[in-house]
């Protein structure tokens, strides 16, 4: 691993330079909202961002993705694989919580037995450049409660941490090191810089205001699938799925065919357990008939089922669902309330 220093002002141009060579997916500000997008020619990323509205998972697991094309012919159906190939890409400016989301998504999409080629290919061809949080960007951030850290980014290829006049750039993987040349003149990081990083990182941890008993509620969840508590959280919920769509770890999808005449495409689109048709069966029966059962699923999946299956909580504490829920359903409050029942 190499640790280098660059002047703060230089970073924007470095990213611009990288973007001249490969597609760069980075935070961009439009109006008062920040989204991850591919940088247009000559466009700089927005560096002063807190975090984006959408999660960077969109790059590997887009909301709408064509899986294949088909044509009905006299000889039967002809299938054509989606021929889009991905060049090497760079994902720039990922916050540590969102970097963690990729580890969780890998557990689902990149298993020994089942591997999702669409996700894996994009993931493998992408170099992830993380930007540590010098301060937690939102008062709703709770990464440290769910196994994360505001200044560490295990799983990133390059980690950039803001110091005082400089950025500390750590090349964490061979993929990351390949980009070294594009960073231009780099000074080696000295002891003082590394110490300063440690100091700021401790400050960032201390500045996290939101804490939830995320692991503690597991035992309660294990034995309380039926409990009056579940009647108390869902009434205001609009079943809009905004929480799942913006969540960096939600990964449910639907597959459907869209045909025109003899030609069709097979599409994969995001789905959400908050929707009534998510669990609707062809017979008309719905095993999760109401929003009560759907909210229980959302919470159970994140804090119990995923833990049972992969030994990790499926929430990275980014707070997107908290901030964007139109009726202020707050997953932190729900977890805290469950802990009180324990």
């Amino acid at each position: 691993m190499e640790a280098k220093l660059i002047k703060k002002a230089a970073l924007g141009d470095i990213v611009k330079k990288i973007a001249g060579q490969k597609p760069v997916y980075a935070p961009v500000k439009e109006g008062s909202k920040v989204h991850f997008k591919f940088l247009a020619k000559g466009e700089s990323p927005f560096l002063a961002y807190a975090n984006s509205v959408n999660a960077p998972k969109n790059l590997f697991f887009p909301q709408t993705e064509t899986l294949m094309h088909y044509t009905k012919t006299a000889r039967g159906n002809e299938l054509v694989e989606e021929s889009e190939t991905f060049s090497e890409m760079v994902l720039f400016g990922v916050r540590p919580c969102d970097v963690r989301s990729f580890k969780l998504l890998d557990m689902v999409f990149d298993q020994k037995q089942y591997s999702d080629p669409y996700y894996v290919e994009k993931r493998e061809r992408t170099t992830i450049i993380a930007l540590a949080c010098r301060q937690p960007p939102f008062s709703t951030c709770f990464c440290t409660s769910v196994g994360g850290h505001p200044a560490q980014a295990d799983g990133a290829d390059i980690l950039i941490s803001e110091l005082d006049d400089d950025y500390l750039v750590e090349f964490l993987s061979p993929k990351g090191e390949k980009l070294i040349k594009l960073f231009g003149d780099l000074r080696a990081a000295d002891e003082a810089a590394l110490n300063r990083k440690k100091e700021l990182s401790d400050e960032a941890v201390a500045a996290i205001k939101s804490h939830i008993p995320a692991t503690e509620i597991k035992t309660w969840l294990d034995s309380n699938f039926e409990h009056p508590f579940w009647d108390s959280i869902h009434q205001g919920c609009l079943a809009c799925g905004t929480c799942s769509y913006l969540c960096p770890t939600c990964h449910c999808f639907d597959i459907r065919d869209e045909a025109q005449g003899d030609d069709g495409i097979r599409l994969r689109t995001w789905d959400s357990c908050m929707y009534s048709i998510y669990s609707q069966e062809t017979s008309g029966h719905n095993p999760r008939p109401g929003q009560k059962q759907r909210w229980r699923q959302r919470l159970m999946h994140k804090f119990k089922y995923f833990v049972d299956n992969y030994d990790a909580i499926s929430c990275v504490g980014c707070g997107r669902c908290v901030m964007s829920c139109p009726v202020n359903t707050d997953i932190r409050k729900i977890v805290n309330d469950i802990a009180k029942l324990n």
Partner: peptide, 10 residues
């Protein structure tokens, strides 16, 4: 609500 300047249906 749980956030500043927010309310929730109850």
């Amino acid at each position: 609500g749980t956030l500043p300047l927010q309310t929730a249906p109850c």
